[in-house]
Design a protein around this nucleic acid. Structure first.
Lengths: 168, 168
DNA sequence: TTAAACTTTCAATAATTTCTGAAAGTTTTA
DNA sequence: TAAAACTTTCAGAAATTATTGAAAGTTTAA
């Protein structure tokens, strides 16, 4: 198989997988493209390679930068910007978990806190059940956060990585 | 605040949160509703409470059952089925992680294996970079899987939970 | 300045996903 | 057996999300 073909297969497949990760196809494809090149690509090169409109590339590259998965680079003497993926898989996974925590966990915590703060009137039994649901969910959120932090630790510590594998 | 109001707030909010979890609003709302009742509800009661069509309730309850977050229950002498949420937060989180692993990680692994198996022709440098990307991603997937397994362990072991918290 | 090279925005359109509700299917009861 | 009580399916409608592309904005060079 030609390298080009493999790369393109990777980009296409990563694009479809994107949706199950809650990421748009274009964003996932652009990310795959940039990951597969050690050097940065310009907006025009991205448009060309993944066949997307200028606007789409602009929006999604910006989003990738928000996720801290890609950064802008300027080349001396070149006017246009180049986009480079972060290639270190530890940093990538850390940034993804960070962002997911922010998007998926924090809003839940906010909701739970709001409801926990209220004094609920109703049949004692039912109130009790509802409140214990709230507190269970809060525990769950905390545990997910601990796990994310643990992940970060693991990334920076090979010994701990082995420990985790051993006890899993 | 009336219990009813709190519950309804919870259901509505959980519904919106659902989208950032990659789950449809209806499914998330139904889950929230069932979580908030200790006993099971019938399809008609669900339709009534969250204002959804019969078809929608049927589909999403089935999906919740697939995720192992809800189960069917029959009551002696009653003809209709009742749906009860699993209320144990450990089981819930385990089942969610299990399902996410299946949906999000396994397809990636399949793709990576497929590409890893091919012999790639191209400039040595570039092939090398691409292959090292593939192997890095495979490592990442493994690590996520280890973490999921660890989560399961934690759930069943309070001592380990404390250990994790301590080293995080 | 002006023009060229580039980036950003955003209204319109397309694609995808979700939801409805009526019809078909199934099981139980009389 | 028929009919009542319930569940499932699925084509079409509605809602949501993603994408385009042209126009506006910005920066640099001449």
């Amino acid at each position: 198989m030609k390298l080009e073909e493999g790369r393109s297969k990777f980009i296409q497949a990563w694009g479809s997988l994107g949706s199950s990760w809650g990421i748009s196809k274009s964003m996932a494809q652009i990310h795959a493209l940039l990951l597969s090149y050690p050097e940065g690509l310009s907006a025009d090169e991205i448009m060309e390679q993944v066949q997307l409109s200028r606007g789409n590339v602009n929006t999604n590259v910006r989003e990738l930068i928000n996720w801290r998965l890609v950064r802008k680079e300027t080349v001396l003497g070149e006017r246009k910007e180049f986009f480079v993926a972060l290639h270190d898989v530890h940093t990538i996974s850390q940034n993804i978990m960070e962002e997911r925590k922010r998007r998926e966990l924090e809003p839940v915590r906010r909701l739970l806190n709001e409801l926990k703060a209220a004094t609920l009137e109703g049949k004692e039994e039912d109130v009790k059940h509802f409140q214990s649901l709230l507190s269970d969910l809060a525990d769950f959120v905390s545990q997910m956060e601990n796990l994310t932090n643990l992940m970060t630790k693991i990334n920076n510590n090979n010994y701990m990585k082995k420990l985790i594998k051993a006890i899993s």
